[in-house]
């Protein structure tokens, strides 16, 4: 296991936090109430804070002279290893909540395991992040219940979001060869054993929200290999604008 293996593993976790944090940030100032606006911004702040801890560690591990910002802003699209779920657009509040909930349940399980990693950096980041993510999960889960079992309109919108985003859930558990290597070394997490607990948990909440579980014969994947949806390029051109336009400057 080389440092490069470890770096690639970190991208698989940290890029999720970065891209989801970026997506939620787009909503700041546009939420349905001030209270939800403040809460969603908190979630974005947590995710971006986690991202910084991971990327600072990448900068330490890297043979090149990197900063956290080089890692965040100066990679090409194929080099980002986030799952497709987190790059999906903020179509409406139902999509935002369902995307969040699908991710949060996985994220919480992953961090619970990562807390027991042999790697002390992972342990520390996981420990700190777990507190945050347990709140995220409660927030998104509670809102999914409200939307599902709210009005006819909210139920229809929530069901639509569940149907459309369900196809991105399986990828959360996809293990790349590198993931397997890191997990076998006791540094990373084998996500396979988490999968059934994940589906049990989200299925129970969706049904409890009076919504149906979609029947999907096929799941979308590709993000972990850097093959993203067409949304990703726009996220990056927005996010990387300053670093690309004014290279090598301090901000």
């Amino acid at each position: 296991m080389t440092n490069e293996n470890l770096i690639q593993y970190i991208y698989g976790i940290a890029d999720n936090s970065l891209i989801l944090g970026q997506r939620i940030s787009e909503l700041c100032g546009h939420g349905p109430t001030l209270e939800t606006d403040i809460a969603m911004t908190n979630i974005a702040l947590d995710l971006l804070g986690q991202t910084r801890s991971y990327y600072q560690y990448v900068a330490e591990l890297s043979a090149k002279d990197l900063t956290e910002d080089d890692v965040a802003f100066l990679r090409t699209e194929r080099e980002y290893k986030n799952v497709l779920l987190v790059e999906q657009p903020n179509t409406d509040f139902a999509y935002v909540i369902v995307r969040q909930y699908f991710f949060d349940v996985f994220h919480f399980m992953l961090l619970k395991e990562l807390e027991n990693s042999k790697n002390v950096n992972f342990q520390a980041i996981a420990k700190k992040s777990l507190k945050e993510v347990s709140y995220h999960k409660r927030f998104s889960g509670d809102w999914l219940k409200r939307l599902g079992d709210g009005t006819e309109e909210s139920k229809a919108k929530a069901q639509q979001a569940v149907n459309d985003l369900w196809v991105y859930t399986d990828e959360l558990f996809q293990m790349t060869d590198n993931d397997i290597l890191i997990a076998e070394a006791g540094y990373g997490v084998d996500t396979n054993p988490l999968k059934s607990a994940y589906y049990n948990e989200i299925t129970a909440l969706i049904k409890g929200s009076t919504l149906d579980i979609p029947e999907t014969p096929y799941f979308q994947k590709g993000g972990k290999q850097g093959i993203h949806t067409e949304h990703m390029g726009f996220i990056l051109s927005d996010m990387q604008y300053m670093q690309r336009t004014y290279p090598d400057m301090k901000w």
Partner: peptide, 22 residues
């Protein structure tokens, strides 16, 4: 926010705009 030039600035700006909501 989406175009802030560094992660540190992005986080600080988000927190600032959130304070305004508060």
């Amino acid at each position: 926010i989406s175009r802030a030039p560094s992660l540190r600035r992005k986080v600080a700006l988000l927190a600032k705009v959130q304070d305004e909501a508060g």
